[in-house]
Design a protein around this nucleic acid. Structure first.
Lengths: 402, 402
DNA sequence: AACCTTTGTCAATCAACTTAACAAACGACG
DNA sequence: CGTCGTTTGTTAAGTTGATTGACAAAGGTT
């Protein structure tokens, strides 16, 4: 039974703890507010929160103003309860970062271009991870886990990279296993889009709990879906391939095996390719957007076409799962308002949902360069969802990871 | 907090009851097996099951053979614990049916074509419902609820029919409210595809718990998605419009507002329309399939085209949510093996998932004429998911519904 | 200063599952 | 045929976690 309902008392307590933590994570809350939102009694909340404070997960940080009556005591996460590491590997290189319990980036270490042999690259990564874990600033703080993000597809369950294009060095590498000797069992792998989706849910536009689809438009098109508490990622974390949604079943064949994937019409390189003939001087996305802003008619038209293609794929997702919003991120964040508006217009013109509600399209408020933060966020997310027992372990001493 | 986790003891008990019931629903089980599958102890199971037997929901029906040791006592639902009514309204007419707790159809009453005025039609429906509820065979059995299925789109939450094409008589009717005086508060509305999906999950190919998408191909194309315990239906039950998945974003405009919906390529009338020029003598789906079986090349080609269109839409869904199977139903069940094979071939040719696993395509094992059963199934499903407290009510006496 | 309100805590109680022991039922094997 | 080992189901005591209800703390209002 894969059910996640509480069967006995202790599991109930764990779930209630989780529920409280996920509410505190959204921002400062008082016990009495938690009582209302969780459905538990004030007394019950008091006991659980007491335990969480004892453990060092929560702190009282102040009071909320009140109009008559005792002031509510605000609770927040205690950021230095522990830290998580993030590792992001891209085609260009890699980067390691450290975040605290709140997901705030403490610092990052760019690794630059990696060695061209697999073992040397792994060795270098391990070196940096070891050095980071041994860092004095992290002494006496709990190590909560290591999150890794790479281009997809990946096999989340196995912790292995499958076969991302232009990423042959890493094909088939069981990354979580490889790094277990450095970071123990709390190593989690996800593809870039999934990592960004979790980050967006925890720290971005999805913070207050609605459903949305995150669209990452760069060299490829990735996406993630958040609905309720769930981040969809399929049985092996291989799903969510919104970029390979077919929007023209008779269209050209994509390398993924389908025909007419959105990616062929709307990814950055494909858009630039469409411009090559009439606007050969445009070489980058930013050039393209600048020209569109400047009023170049061809660029405007191409942008509109891109928006139509993206909107078609998005409308399919939105209609099928009845999502409430769309969030955009990736390279297209550069002066992204233009594309955002175009997509919003197209989606709300064509989506069936238009009869029922307006679908807002947002630009991500998270920094595009927050890939490391998002990677570490995977581990933070796992920590809070209770998928790991990293919390139960002993403190991480100065002697390096065990 | 919309969370469904148990917060306190009594909710925990309810959820454990539900968990046990949903396992028993799949087929005869022994207490000890329930203990393993639920994670509870034998003792805990014994107590809960004892209560369920006391209430009349379960009965012991026999023993399972064993190799040494006491024989396990098999538990099953007690079918005559209560009954649910099903009402299905189509463009052609309506029908009322009665099912027992196990979902078995006891009998059905065709209403034939309905009066052309809304109030007269409602009146007739109410009459038949009242007569059914007062029926002697149902005396001293609990009334569990009334499930209604109609063409979509409907607003599940509001219990209202929205604006299905060719269904103007019913546009905007708040059916659940209208029938409340006959059937109380346990009235549930869903569109045909949703009802069939629930039935397929409970009694058909989805019985043993995997995820799947059900595709209903008739005059329109409907669908339902089952993943885990959940039947997707969106925030207002308006979703799951797989039939209006766009598979050609530049294609002809559909009345739904999108372009190139699958429905335009693969619904029964649209397929027949495509044949009209070269095969004018083919007037019905069955004719078409018979010709294809007989080897008619044009029909074969058209069938293959239809399969390609359906496969494109299905591949999008499957890839996005990583579903495990496809189930087909509707008019296409007639000698459906031909189309089934074609779809299975296309899906597994093009779906990205082909690298990971084969996606089986099944024909529904439920009778196409089981619409009433499926409608009543909505109420049964609600009963078991605890969305209704109909069970707490007093027995339904001979004096008619209160 | 008296009064009302709200927040947070504490002790007693209650509800639900677990633990542990045992009875029931059955096959196997001398 | 009776004993042994095994598995199933039940029962009573024990544990755990939330609720109940009373109360202290803290703050505004008049």
């Amino acid at each position: 039974m894969t059910n996640r309902t509480a069967q006995n008392g202790s599991q109930m307590r764990l779930l209630n703890r989780m529920m409280i933590l996920s509410l505190v994570r959204r921002g400062p809350v008082a016990r009495s507010e938690l009582a209302v939102e969780t459905g538990l009694t004030r007394a019950g909340i008091s006991v659980i929160v007491g335990g969480l404070i004892e453990e060092g997960l929560l702190v009282e940080t102040g009071f909320r103003g009140s109009a008559g009556g005792r002031k509510p005591v605000l609770l927040e996460l205690r950021p230095d309860y522990g830290f998580a590491l993030g590792l992001t590997i891209s085609r260009a290189g890699a980067e390691v970062g450290v975040v605290n319990l709140k997901g705030e980036l403490l610092w990052q270490t760019p690794l630059g271009a990696l060695p061209l042999s697999r073992s040397a690259a792994l060795l270098k990564i391990k070196q940096v991870l070891r050095r980071t874990l041994a860092s004095r600033r992290l002494a006496n703080h709990r190590f909560l886990g290591l999150g890794i993000s790479t281009p997809g597809p990946v096999d989340v369950m196995a912790g292995a990279i499958l076969n991302p294009p232009n990423f042959e060095l890493w094909h088939g590498v069981r990354l979580c296993d490889e790094l277990a000797d450095v970071a123990g069992r709390s190593v989690f792998l996800a593809n870039n889009s999934q990592a960004l989706t979790m980050a967006e849910k925890a720290y971005g536009k999805g913070r207050d709990g609605g459903s949305f689809v995150l669209l990452v438009v760069e060299n490829g098109i990735g996406a993630g879906i958040v609905r309720g508490e769930e981040v969809f990622s399929g049985w092996r974390g291989f799903g969510n391939e919104v970029g390979h949604t077919s929007i023209d079943y008779q269209g050209p064949e994509c390398e993924c095996g389908l025909r007419g994937c959105v990616e062929l019409y709307a990814s950055v390189p494909n858009v630039l390719r469409a411009l090559r003939r009439s606007r050969p001087q445009i070489a980058t996305w930013n050039d393209f957007i600048d020209s569109a802003h400047a009023g170049d008619a061809v660029c405007r038209r191409v942008l509109e076409e891109q928006a139509r293609a993206l909107a078609a794929a998005l409308a399919n997702v939105i209609n099928m799962l009845e999502l409430e919003a769309i969030v955009l991120t990736g390279d297209i964040l550069y002066r992204g308002e233009l594309l955002r508006q175009a997509i919003e217009r197209q989606v709300n013109l064509t989506a069936m949902n238009r009869r029922l509600r307006h679908i807002p399209v947002h630009l991500s408020s998270l920094d595009k360069h927050s890939a490391v933060m998002a990677a570490a966020g995977i581990a933070i997310e796992k920590f809070f969802s209770g998928d790991t027992q990293a919390t139960a372990g002993p403190r991480h001493g100065t002697g390096g990871p065990r």
